[in-house]
Amino acid sequence: MALFRLNPLAPQEPALSIANTDDVLQLGDRLKGVRLIALRFPKFTDGRAYSQARLLRERLGYGGELRATGAVFLDQLPFLLRCGFDSFESDQKGFGPALAKARTLFSVVYQPTGDGRATAGQLRLGRRNSVAA
């Protein structure tokens, strides 16, 4: 299993591994000082960890490394990145190059998430305002 990290300098300890049935909103103080959280995809079609990731990043303000483990395929990468994952365990062929490309695969996004990308809606609003001004 190869590990792909977007931020290789990030210190990894202490770490937490969370099942996708766990309620991350109950973690409370256990998140303090944590540098790495591993979320699991038992099958790549089981999407619970996407919600966990967004709650960790956007609701709980978790800023450490967020790792996708288990059945992690390159076709999920655009989604994983948008939900806040920044490291990935995968043995799929071509995963590394796919990761390099995944951010630019879609130049447009519609949903606001914690990744900070401006959505099509926000960009349109900006355009209209600049036309109006």
Partner: peptide, 13 residues
């Protein structure tokens, strides 16, 4: 339609 298209959190419901 726009909000749900390639929704990153809800593509594996």
């Amino acid at each position: 339609r726009q909000w749900s298209t390639l929704h990153p959190e809800f593509s594996f419901l």
